[in-house]
């Protein structure tokens, strides 16, 4: 669907050069909800704007459905842009138009008939559940409602692809979830491929199937969301993973340990994928001569796969504990002693 081949983007301002993107290689499949996450200034917006040719790559090529938009004539380009919807952090609705007229704008640009426009706008309004707000002006709407207008406006031309630039970053957590659910429906119901950029892990976790992590204009990790965040390799990826799963040992446990407040030894269990569903703790309790106390825990679902962390105090003699560790290793649970 979308293909970045060794793309570099350099902005040249007065004397200064900014390398916004470097050597980007990326494939986004039809039907994906593909998330790009990174801190502010990482180059996410630039990456997104290359897809609908709001920016042109300095070197390399971006292909959308096999077409290199940078090579098209202006007229052909406009034709292709109409197949790509876009929504924004600040919604970017026209203040001078009401909700209905805002959604009608892309159709007016195609000079469609009033009848067609009316039908399509009403369909889009119904889809985003804003039929009763058709005559309202943007300033009369809440943030979530404005974004739903933005989504309706992006969908009204039946695009194949939807680009989302921090679409939920200006919204509160509850509204964010509602908008993400709506985007999921867009993907499911219409089969529209979604490419979104964000700095919020919540967004990635909630709806993306694949993810790329960006830092300083480069993609540092990419793959299935679960794989990338269950076992992050780079420091930045780890930081993002920490936002949804706290796998660091709580400071208080360290403090209590150094104060010798625990009877037994403290271990950090990490469950990944398959091992999460197994009754490992109860097995240990039943079959080994040890006592277990769960000190702290955290289990998380990403894309219907679970992973989690437990801090467990094990009381027993060292021989027995060694057996426990061996059993855990066989069960593919990663265990580390906390000291």
């Amino acid at each position: 669907m979308i293909e970045f081949n060794d793309v570099t983007k350099v902005f040249t301002n007065k004397k200064q050069q900014v390398m916004a993107l470097q050597n980007i290689d990326l494939h986004i499949q039809q039907g994906d909800i593909f998330g790009v996450i990174g801190y502010s200034g990482a180059g996410k917006s630039t990456l997104l704007r290359l897809v609908n040719a709001l920016e042109i790559p300095t070197t390399g090529e971006v292909l959308v459905q096999g077409k290199n938009l940078a090579r098209l004539s202006k007229k052909e380009l406009r034709q292709e842009q109409k197949k790509i919807g876009m929504i924004f952090q600040h919604f970017n609705l026209l203040q001078s138009r009401n909700v209905y007229e805002n959604i009608a704008l892309p159709l007016e640009l195609e000079q469609q008939s009033k009848v067609d426009i009316d039908r399509k706008v009403k369909e889009a309004l119904a889809f985003v559940n804003l039929t009763d707000k058709a005559q309202h002006f943007p300033e009369q709407l809440s943030g979530g409602q404005k974004q739903r207008v933005g989504i309706a406006r992006a969908l009204v031309t039946n695009p194949e692809l939807l680009l989302c630039d921090e679409a939920t970053s200006a919204l509160d957590p509850q509204t964010t979830i509602a908008i993400l659910q709506l985007l999921k429906r867009v993907n499911k119901v219409f089969g529209i491929t979604i490419l979104l950029i964000t700095h919020e892990m919540e967004v990635i976790k909630e709806i993306c199937n694949r993810v790329a992590v960006m830092e300083e204009g480069a993609i540092i990790e990419t793959g299935q969301v679960f794989d990338v965040f269950a076992q992050p390799k780079k420091a930045t990826t780890k930081q993002f993973a920490q936002m949804i799963v706290r796998d660091d040992v709580p400071v208080v446990i360290h403090e209590l340990l150094s104060a010798n407040r625990y009877q037994g030894r403290v271990f950090h269990f990490k469950f990944l994928g398959d091992s999460t569903g197994k009754p490992i703790i109860s097995h240990i309790a039943k079959h080994y001569e040890v006592d277990l106390t769960i000190l702290f825990g955290n289990i998380m679902e990403i894309q219907s796969t679970f992973f989690g962390h437990l801090m467990v105090e094990i009381i027993g003699d060292d021989v027995e504990i060694a057996k426990v560790l061996q059993f855990a290793e066989q069960s593919q649970v990663n265990i580390q002693e906390v000291s």
Binding site: N52, L54, L77, R78, Q79, E80, Q81, K82, I84, M86, F88, H90, F91, N92, L93, L94, Q95, S96, R97, L105, P106, E108, L109, T157, L163
Partner: peptide, 28 residues
Amino acid sequence: DEGVIEATRAMGATPVQLIIKVLLPEAF
């Protein structure tokens, strides 16, 4: 608002459409 201009460009508007349908009405 520059964002509004960007959104309109993303829709594949011609410059004339952008001026007549967006710039002038928004500044009216």
